[in-house]
């Protein structure tokens, strides 16, 4: 049998990005006009307003001499309303999954796939175009919410944010978009793997639930198995905590939580040894400059982006191999 099978090794004609911007434009238009997205955007906006009002009241009540009031808009909650940051932890994945769970299988189910791929484009353009469009949409929605919150803050607190605050908030926005990116990539992979959009959506939500709710519990059970404390030496204790932390950080939720904490609470000087929830206890003295806070969570940022790229690459390989016949 002849060796034409080795087609992937051969050079392909033209650019893999031919037609990508057409896909981006179409997908963004779809996203921005779909009822599904409007409902979610409304939900997020309402949550933001509610949570930020709570935060503002809390800030007003404590009348502290804080340099970083605007950052508190995101981290302060007023019981029973949690801080907006916590809402973001699950609203962003929800938004991302809602956009991407039927990205590829939807084209198959509508029988548009073979028609689209019969145009002079590569599959790369379709997949990457969709991912980019969804990422841009996410960025657009999140930026709008950011502006809304900062606007509310300016009106209610009666002062503009400082340059340092704006810089931190921008980095936080960027990190939140990256956090969304990982869920976009996951939902995309599932939309390639499963022909039924409902199956893809449910599995994406299952993965999210797993990391949001169960992973820490599982990690806490696993850690002593991996690094047992036999004699109670401090080194053993340390290793146990390190193992636990390592396991936690396999979850995007933990990574995002740590990044958010470092960016929104300049006082935080260490990431580790103590869980982010207990971090307020570790506050020592003066706040860090932004560059130092960034340095602190640079590995987490890189981790988020790397995981996104890995997931996307997996989706890419799966999609290239797929038979396009419905």
């Amino acid at each position: 049998m002849s060796q034409h099978v080795l087609r992937r090794e051969r050079a392909r004609e033209g650019s893999p990005w031919t037609g990508m911007w057409a896909v981006v434009a179409k997908e963004m238009a779809d996203n921005l006009t779909s009822a599904r997205m409007h409902i979610l955007e409304l939900l997020i906006a309402l949550t933001a307003v509610g949570a930020v009002y709570g935060a503002i009241q809390e800030i007003m009540n404590t009348i502290s001499e804080d340099r970083f009031l605007f950052l508190k808009l995101f981290t302060e909650g007023r019981l029973p309303m949690p801080a907006f940051l916590e809402f973001l932890g699950f609203l962003v994945p929800l938004l991302a999954i809602a956009m991407s769970f039927d990205a590829i299988n939807g084209e198959f189910n509508r029988r548009t796939m073979s028609r689209i791929l019969a145009q002079p484009i590569y599959r790369d353009a379709l997949l990457f175009g969709k991912f980019l469009a969804h990422l841009f949409t996410l960025a657009l929605v999140l930026t709008a919410i950011w502006l809304l919150i900062i606007g509310l803050g300016i009106v209610r607190l009666g002062l503009p944010p400082s340059g340092e605050e704006m810089a931190r908030l921008l980095w936080f926005l960027l990190a939140t978009i990256f956090y969304g990116g990982i869920w976009l990539a996951l939902a995309m992979v599932l939309s390639i793997e499963f022909r039924q959009p409902a199956t893809a959506a449910l599995s994406a939500i299952a993965v999210w639930l797993f990391f949001a709710v169960f992973w820490k519990m599982i990690a806490n059970v696993l850690a002593p198995v991996i690094s047992p404390v036999r004699y109670g030496f401090p080194e053993e204790q340390l290793r146990l905590v390190q193992t636990q932390l390592f396991l936690w950080r396999l979850s995007p939720n933990t990574l995002y939580g740590e990044i958010a904490m470092a960016l929104l609470r300049p006082e935080i000087r260490v990431m580790g040894f103590i869980s982010p929830v207990q971090l307020s206890g570790a506050i020592l003295g003066t706040p860090l400059p932004l560059s130092q806070s960034l340095l602190l969570v640079w590995p987490q940022m890189t981790g988020l982006v790397a995981a996104t790229i890995l997931l996307f690459a997996l989706g890419y390989v799966l999609f290239q191999r797929q038979e396009i016949r419905a």
């Binding site: 034409h4 050079a11 392909r12 004609e13 033209g14 019969a118 145009q119 002079p120 484009i121 590569y122």
Partner: peptide, 11 residues
């Protein structure tokens, strides 16, 4: 296989 874009632009 090698020039899919040229083919698909004309077919």
């Amino acid at each position: 296989m090698r020039q899919p874009l040229s083919v698909k632009a004309r077919v």
